[in-house]
Design a protein around this nucleic acid. Sequence first.
DNA 1: GGTGAAATCGGTGAGCT
DNA 2: AGCTCACCGATTTCACC
Lengths: 151, 151
Amino acid sequence: MDDPVDHAILAALSRDGRATLAQLSETVGLSTSAVQSRLKRLESRGVIAGYQAVLDPEAVGVPLSAFIEITPIDPGQPDNAPELLEPLTEIEACHSIAGDASYMLFVRVTGPRALEKLVNDIRAIANVRTRATIVLQTYYERRPVLAAAAD
Amino acid sequence: MDDPVDHAILAALSRDGRATLAQLSETVGLSTSAVQSRLKRLESRGVIAGYQAVLDPEAVGVPLSAFIEITPIDPGQPDNAPELLEPLTEIEACHSIAGDASYMLFVRVTGPRALEKLVNDIRAIANVRTRATIVLQTYYERRPVLAAAAD
DNA sequence: GGTGAAATCGGTGAGCT
DNA sequence: AGCTCACCGATTTCACC
């Protein structure tokens, strides 16, 4: 499970998700079909969960992002905020966290007005308190998890 | 810039980053070469910033993730924490934020011990105070920014 | 934006180590 | 088992209409 070749394949694909078998086989030093069988194994085992194009948020019209912490108003009742909030497509990520709040969301919206509406929707839908922290600038995000190993 | 066809291409690629021109041309109802020229335009304009394989964090050995808020100890001096911290590969994202703290990091590590070491490294490197919030469970993340438009 | 031809790529099976 | 090699359908790429 900690095979260095698999590791190299994963590192390469997390940097260029459209890398071809030929490119991968060159970087790892195996034939394309050897790479292919490893790839299929990694995909079927779920190590590779999928492939995504990374879009520029500003270019696609959602230049404003924010973190929203969520706290249940009534701590006694069953809490299924993640499912309730799932239809809100502005929410990019939802984690439960240890700390004052129960959940941490990361959201992207068109602007301040849309953020206000989103926060109100969240409060109404999940019966929660919210604390939004606006992102002023994103220096980097979605950096690859794996480091590229030197030869 | 708000072309519905481009929008559909982007939506499809953010769900399946390895979609072929043939698949894309079917979903948008154009020929493959028309899709291709649009794709190249979207890539060269930076609307598509790149492609990534999405890896299962647990399967690649970083099951623990956390948010780390960063506050400068000395508010008077020049602050280039994002550049200073960039070599720390455990940091997946770095945003500057409005609020008590200056920056919000999202990090992935192998476990609590690695988190402790990372926090110490961050403090030492950037001369900052930190506040870490551990992620207990991730319900979803990296959800596509664009909704798939109905016909 | 569409068409068509050449280069390249992905997928499968036979044979080797 | 895992890898290499050879083959063929699919895909990408690039001219041109």
